[in-house]
Design a protein around this nucleic acid. Structure first.
Lengths: 233, 233
DNA sequence: CCTAGCATAATGTCGTACCATTTGACCCTA
DNA sequence: TAGGGTCAAATGGTACGACATTATGCTAGG
């Protein structure tokens, strides 16, 4: 006699709508760039009120699955992926989880060391050129006294891109974000540290160009290791 | 709980509210478990309409920062971290980003290999016991023909916990989720593979108990490497 | 014929009022 | 004391209207 009745509806209408649209995306009925019907149309098609539709769109937007533009020819568009949104979400979570900056730095140490062999193997000329260019700009900024951790993060993020593995690149980027705030304070306390870091960035590019994972690992261990020491825990 | 929030001005109102509450959480004025004022109170405190407040709550909920309960004594509560929410978000994102399962597996390979030295160094008796216990249950399930990738994921997630680094553990967990679907298909194609995997899990625990990072790395490389091969890309 | 500027329509955003639903707390009775 | 019923607090949902923003097309003047 069990199992005769099934739950009639899952609590909230908006989550139903979200699930429907997510499913449509998963199954390829909606692809990035596609436009969803206007709110007022969805209201009619789904037989719900505009508020519910809006709620659903807010959720999808927060998840990074759609982007909403206002005005004529506006509306909800299925987005190409927006890594920075996920990065921010993870950052929020890390903060809530009472993750200490030193823990994040340790994670960086582990992860960036591990991806170096891949980077050495796969980096192409475009990658190397991009890294060099970042170094150039960073050094110019340093001379002008405008160097900050954001530039350093740019280098490390691009380094992740050298693996030509989207997932690795995404995580590399994510690991930069949460740190910026606490690092920015550390940097002010020790403004000279930036110069050494820049030299190491250069050396790192050379090691990758030479396809020498061991040398790259040694440099990176020193480089991020010093950052770890600079962070009081 | 009065006077916590100030009226808003620019852009989309809901995002302003989200930012205010996020800031309150970041600065510790709101901690996990705390309850936000009711929608209608926030409406008055912020000088906006319920629609905006609701939008903000939906966004915060989708981000995993608050949980909304209905009914008396209900309302919006700042949540303890909800890794599975972010994991799901990342899964969606990875799908959209055209990340192939083999790319995710490669990331796992890189990351899990790198965290082994930490795990070997820091695993305590409780960690080892937990891993053994997972192995026990997995083997029992295997004998009963009920072994699936979720059990394997459990082992790998707990392995991340052995580093005693919250951030590392979180990433290890997150990396399991997106794969489950595609792996489930692969497993069906080769049901015998599970047994070998279980033996390797045992061997891995032994290596960690012996504080032998090299042996652990060798086993893990073989273990995840075979998974990588099993995934067509 | 071409261009600047304005009118218009499409679309999301915000506000208000009202009713429905859920759920815990309290009280009342057997 | 146990059980159930009622109440109140809170979110969930609907309807309608007004406003803001933007692309497009039309018109008037050069």
């Amino acid at each position: 006699m069990n199992g005769f009745f099934t739950p009639v509806s899952t609590g909230r209408i908006s989550t139903d709508i979200v699930d429907q649209i997510k499913a449509a995306i998963r199954e390829g009925r909606l692809a990035p760039g596609d436009q969803l019907p206007p709110e007022r149309d969805l209201t009619r098609q789904l037989g719900v009120s505009r508020v519910s539709v809006r709620d659903a769109l807010r959720i999808l937007e927060a998840t990074g699955l759609v982007e909403v533009k206002v005005g004529a020819r506006g509306g909800a568009f299925v987005t190409a992926p927006a890594p920075h949104l996920v990065a921010e979400g993870i950052a929020d979570m890390l903060r809530l989880a009472d993750v200490t900056p030193s823990e994040v730095t340790e994670t960086r140490l582990v992860f960036e060391l591990a991806l170096l062999p891949l980077a050495c193997e796969r980096a192409d000329e475009a990658d190397l050129a991009a890294l060099e260019e970042i170094c150039d700009r960073a050094e110019a900024a340093f001379s002008a006294g405008a160097y900050d951790v954001a530039r350093s993060a740019e280098f490390h993020t691009r380094l992740g891109g050298c693996t030509h593995n989207t997932a690795v690149a995404l995580f590399a980027e994510v690991l930069q974000g949460p740190l910026l705030r606490s690092l920015q304070q550390a940097k002010r306390a020790d403004p000279a540290a930036g110069g050494t870091g820049l030299l190491e960035h250069r050396a790192l590019v050379d090691a990758i160009r030479a396809r020498d994972p061991e040398r790259a690992r040694a440099i990176m261990a020193e480089h991020v290791g010093r950052t770890a020491k600079r962070i009081a825990h």
